Amino acid sequence: MQGCDGSILLNSTAAGAAEKDAPPNLTLRGFDLIDRVKGLVEQACPGVVSCADVLALAARDAVAAIGGPSWRVPTGRRDGTVSTMQEAVRELPSPSMTFPQLVALFAGKGLDVRDLVWLSGAHTIGIAHCSSFADRLYSYPSAGNGTGTVPPLDAAYAANLRQRKCRMGGRDTTVEMDPGSFLTFDLGYYHTVLKHRALFRSDAALVTDPAARADIAGVVSSPPEVFFQVFARSMARLGAVQVKTGSQGEIRKHCAVVNS
C-alpha cells in the first residue's frame, strides 16, 4: 500500500502475494466491475486514464448512488507497480485497534482525528463476518461491569447476535454493520456507535475519545447534509494520499496486471 495508486487491483504473481489476497481484503468484491469500466475507458482513450483514477471515481459514484454525497475527484493519478500482502496487513486498520492505534495509523497517511471519525462513517453500509468481532461476543467483558478500555457491546444486542446470527462453532455468517439501512448512506452508523452496538472494537473505540464522541454527538443531532459535507471532505483528503503523478508508476492497460 504505497498510496492511492490502484495497487489493490493487482493480482498476485509467482513473485509474491498481492494486497487483494491479504486476509483483510479477502471479502472485497467488484474487481470485475472495475476491469469492465477500465476496458471501456481504454477503448475510448487508450493509455490516458489510470486504474487508480477509475477506482477513485467509482468510490465517489458508489456513495452518491446509495444516497450519499458527491465530491470533486481530481484526476491524473498514475498506477503503482508494487502490491504486497505484507504491506496491506501492516497498514490497513484492524477491527481490534484501539483509538490511539487508529490515530497513529491515520496520522502516518497525513490524516487527522476528524478524518478518522468521518471516514469511519462509511461503515453505515456493508456487512461484517461474525469471526471479525467474535471477541466482542464471547470473550469480551459483559456490559456494565466497568472493565475494558472499549465499551462492550450492548448486552441485549450481543445476546441476540449469539442466539441468531453468530452461534459459537457455527458457520461464519454475516451481520449488517448498520442494521436496517446497511444499503443506504445515512447517519445510522453513528447512532449505532452511541448505542454501543458497533460490531468492531475499532468502531466502539471512537467513543473513548472525548473530542471524537463530541463530534459524533454533534453530527447526529444535525441535518444529514452536515455529515455529508465532512465525509466528502475527508474522502477527498483520503484520495490524495501518496498519489503518483508525472513519471511515477504507469497507466496500466489492464488493472489486474502491470504493463509488460
Rank of each mutant, 00 (worst) to 15 (best):
A18F: 10
A18I: 09
E19W: 08
A22K: 03
A22E: 12
N25M: 15
T27F: 12
L28H: 13
R29G: 14
R29K: 15
R29T: 15
F31N: 06
F31I: 11
D32N: 07
D32H: 07
L33V: 13
L33Q: 11
L33M: 12
L33W: 05
I34G: 11
R36F: 05
K38D: 00
K38F: 01
L40Q: 11
V41M: 06
E42Y: 02
Q43S: 12
Q43Y: 06
Q43G: 12
A44G: 05
A44C: 04
C45S: 14
P46A: 06
P46F: 03
V48Y: 09
V49T: 13
C51R: 00
C51Q: 00
D53H: 05
L55N: 01
L55M: 13
A58Q: 10
A58V: 11
A59W: 00
A59E: 11
R60G: 02
D61G: 00
D61W: 07
D61H: 05
A62G: 09
V63Q: 09
V63M: 14
V63D: 01
A64V: 04
I66R: 09
G67V: 10
G67R: 11
G68W: 06
S70M: 01
W71R: 11
W71M: 06
R72L: 14
R72M: 12
V73G: 02
P74W: 09
P74H: 09
P74C: 03
T75N: 10
R77D: 08
R77Y: 05
R77S: 10
D79W: 01
D79I: 00
T81H: 12
T81E: 13
V82N: 09
V82R: 12
S83N: 12
S83T: 11
S83C: 12
M85S: 14
M85K: 15
Q86T: 12
E87R: 14
E87W: 05
A88N: 05
A88H: 08
V89M: 15
V89T: 14
E91D: 15
L92E: 11
L92T: 15
L92Q: 14
S94R: 10
S94E: 07
S94M: 03
P95F: 04
P95I: 01
S96F: 09
M97E: 10
M97G: 07
T98S: 15
F99R: 00
P100A: 07
Q101C: 02
Q101S: 02
Q101W: 01
L102R: 05
L102Q: 14
A104Y: 00
L105M: 12
F106D: 06
F106Y: 15
A107S: 14
G108M: 02
G108Q: 03
K109M: 14
K109H: 14
G110F: 14
L111Q: 06
L111E: 04
D112G: 13
V113C: 04
V113A: 14
R114F: 13
D115L: 02
D115N: 11
L116G: 05
L116R: 04
V117L: 05
L119R: 03
S120R: 07
G121N: 03
H123D: 13
T124A: 04
G126K: 10
G126S: 13
G126H: 07
I127W: 09
